[in-house]
């Protein structure tokens, strides 16, 4: 029940975010405020079960949100910028040494693994291809293989550590 109501409230807030600037009650028109309510209720009924099942309760902690925003703008963005320049050089020179390697993540929750896989894929030069569901290891396509049995740190820096801190 709680997850349905939480989904409804989140959908309503997101609806307000999207229709910002439509009128003069605050930033919204009265029709948008009214139409948003049935839309949010329908979205909540349809998606509440998924939201409760897959989003771990540890993500409701605001400290983790701050950590996530810091992660996104500082360590992640710098890693992404560096890797982009590296891949840009590879595009120009054509020097590649690709391969699919396996890295041990040591993460337990599915959400943390999704977080890590998405971070790895968004960084150029590394692309998560598959996951070993028993041991939660990731198969990563690496554009410049320096070591055929690498430590996670060689492939994706501090990302597993951050995934553990933010999600688990």
């Amino acid at each position: 029940m709680g997850s349905y109501i939480a989904t409804m409230i989140l959908s309503y807030l997101f609806y307000l975010f999207l229709t910002m600037g439509s009128g003069n009650i605050g930033l919204w028109s009265s029709s948008e405020l009214l139409v948003g309510i049935p839309v949010a209720v329908i979205a909540g009924l349809a998606g509440g079960r998924i939201f409760g099942e897959y989003i771990p309760s540890s993500l409701l902690n605001p400290y983790r949100w701050c950590l996530f925003i810091y992660y996104l703008f500082v360590p992640f963005f710098t890693a992404m910028a560096k890797a982009n320049i590296d891949v840009a050089m590879r595009v120009i020179t054509g020097k590649i040494n690709p391969g699919i390697v396996k890295i041990k993540t040591g993460l337990k929750k599915d959400m943390a693994l999704t977080f890590l896989a998405n971070s790895i894929t968004l960084t150029p030069g590394t692309l998560s291809v598959d996951v070993d569901e028993e041991e939660n290891d990731l198969y990563v396509h690496w554009i410049d293989v320096k070591d055929v049995t690498p430590e996670p740190r060689d492939v994706c820096g501090d990302f597993p550590e951050w995934a553990r801190r933010i999600v688990e």
Partner: peptide, 15 residues
């Protein structure tokens, strides 16, 4: 420039 689907994905989706 790149030879196969995986390396092309690096350039085409991430860059």
């Amino acid at each position: 420039r790149f030879p196969d689907v995986y390396t092309r994905l690096h350039g085409a989706t991430k860059a």
